[in-house]
Amino acid sequence: MVDILNALVLFSNFVLIPGLAYGAQLALGALGVTLIYAVLRFSNFAHGDLMAFGTMATILVTWWFQSMGISFGVLPTALLALPFGIAIAAVMSLFMDRAVYSFYRKKRAAPVTFVIASVGVMFILNGVVRLIIGPDDQRFADGERFIVRARDFEAWSGLSEGLALRSTQAITLVVAILIVIALFWFLNRTRMGKAMRAYSDNEDLALLSGIDPARVVMVTWIIAAALATIAGVLYGLDKSFKPFTYFQLLLPIFAAAIVGGIGNPVGAIAGGFVIAFSEVTVTYAYKRFLGHLLPENLAPDGLVQLLSTDYKFAVSFVILVVVLLFRPTGLFRGKVI
């Protein structure tokens, strides 16, 4: 019995909690991608770097706050800086839309043209971020680091395995839940949200109904920038901020959006968790976990790790390929152009 509890605690500590946090971060990223796809009808390859840009802006404001002695008590100062980061990222998105995408929209360019243009935007943002903050790792988490410490948990429970809950993981989950509720409320209850869904559903009919496309596009960019910045800041708090890592996040985020059904917000959330848990469960070494559960003579000698963490991106790729082969519209039926 104690062995089973130990195994469960171990699993929660190394798979369940990190998977939930990572899944929430991916879900927020995938929501942004899916929203752009649904309304503007292209895959925004610059989303990862928009995340990096928004996070960088948040970090700079955080440092400024810290230098003035402003803090958020036990919570990270970055949460105070987040609204400013979102605003800066939104301004950047609208500028990019005005400078790049609106030109192609006027020409009614094919979706693939937008995708290639977004690759260009991606490189620009990429460069801007590196110029301003540099390519190195930045840690900007402050405040209380743990809600539950492994040692305290061990002492409290008497188990040999500890369970740690870092405050950044809890913050990630709470913020993600609040954001998702707010987003769905906006899309389903407000006039503008319904207009966005209508525009995504049938552009011509939306125009006939008097919906202003310029406003829909503007609001979409602002929301996408907000989602990207929030996802990026949560990821950075949980791990660390490095521009290249954010660029790499593009793959699991797109995998999440496509697995769930691109263009479908519910799908993006489900997809985020599917990808996160696949990555974490496949790259976790089960040696100790099995050691608790199996009789001593059957305990494994090796690490029992299906895939080295170096290959975690392969997981997203494989899932992506399987979904595209067998259910191209994704789990929740997204749109197909």
Binding site: R191, R197, A198, D201
Partner: peptide, 16 residues
């Protein structure tokens, strides 16, 4: 019609 919107939302969009 907006196929993914409910009947009522369709009418609301008509009155946008």
């Amino acid at each position: 019609v907006f196929t993914s919107l409910t009947v009522q939302e369709n009418l609301e969009m008509g009155a946008y």
